[in-house]
Simulated assay, not measured.
Amino acid sequence: MLEILKAIILGIIQGITEWLPVSSTGHMILVDQFLHLAGNKKFVDTFLVVIQFGSILAVILLYFDKLNPFSSSKNAKAKKATWDLWIKVLIAVIPSGVIGVLFEKKIDAVFFKPTVVAAALIIYGIIMIWIESRHKRPVITKFSNLSYKTALLIGVFQILALVPGTSRSGSTIIGALLLGTSRFIAAEFSFFLAIPTMLGASLLKLLKAGFAFSGFEWFIMFVGSLTAFVVSVVVIKFFMGYIKKHDFKAFGVYRIILGIIVFAFFLFS
Rank of each mutant, 00 (worst) to 15 (best):
L90N: 02
L90W: 14
L90D: 04
I91N: 13
I94N: 04
P95S: 14
P95Q: 12
S96K: 11
S96Y: 02
S96H: 13
G97H: 07
V98E: 05
V98Q: 05
I99D: 06
I99R: 01
G100V: 12
L102S: 15
L102G: 09
F103L: 15
F103M: 13
F103I: 15
E104N: 10
E104I: 15
K105S: 12
K106I: 12
K106W: 14
I107E: 01
I107C: 08
D108W: 03
A109E: 15
A109L: 11
T115M: 11
T115V: 15
T115E: 10
V116D: 11
V116Y: 10
A118C: 06
A118S: 09
A118K: 11
A119H: 09
A119G: 08
A120P: 09
A120W: 00
L121D: 03
I122V: 15
I122N: 01
I123T: 13
I123F: 10
I123L: 06
Y124M: 06
I127C: 09
M128Y: 09
M128E: 12
M128S: 07
I129Y: 06
I129D: 05
W130S: 07
W130N: 04
I131E: 06
I131Y: 02
S133I: 01
S133H: 05
S133G: 15
R134D: 06
R134M: 07
H135D: 08
H135G: 00
R137F: 04
R137Y: 08
I140R: 03
I140G: 02
T141A: 08
K142C: 09
K142W: 14
F143D: 01
F143G: 08
S144I: 09
S144L: 03
N145P: 00
N145I: 03
L146E: 00
S147M: 12
Y148D: 15
Y148K: 15
K149I: 05
K149M: 07
K149L: 13
T150N: 02
A151L: 13
L152R: 01
L152G: 15
L153I: 02
I154H: 14
V156R: 00
F157W: 12
F157Y: 11
Q158N: 04
Q158C: 11
Q158Y: 02
I159R: 10
I159Q: 00
L160Q: 01
L162A: 12
L162Q: 05
V163I: 10
V163Y: 02
P164M: 01
R168L: 10
R168V: 11
G170M: 13
G170E: 03
G170T: 09
S171T: 13
T172D: 09
I173F: 07
I173Q: 06
I173A: 10
I174P: 01
I174H: 05
G175C: 08
A176I: 05
L177Q: 10
L177S: 09
L177K: 00
L178R: 04
L178P: 01
L179E: 08
L179Q: 07
G180Q: 12
G180K: 04
G180F: 03
T181N: 13
S182V: 04
R183H: 15
R183T: 08
F184N: 07
I185M: 11
I185Q: 01
I185R: 00
I185C: 14
I185K: 02
A186G: 10
A186P: 00
A187C: 09
A187G: 03
E188S: 11
E188T: 09
F189H: 06
S190K: 01
F191N: 04
F191D: 03
F191H: 07
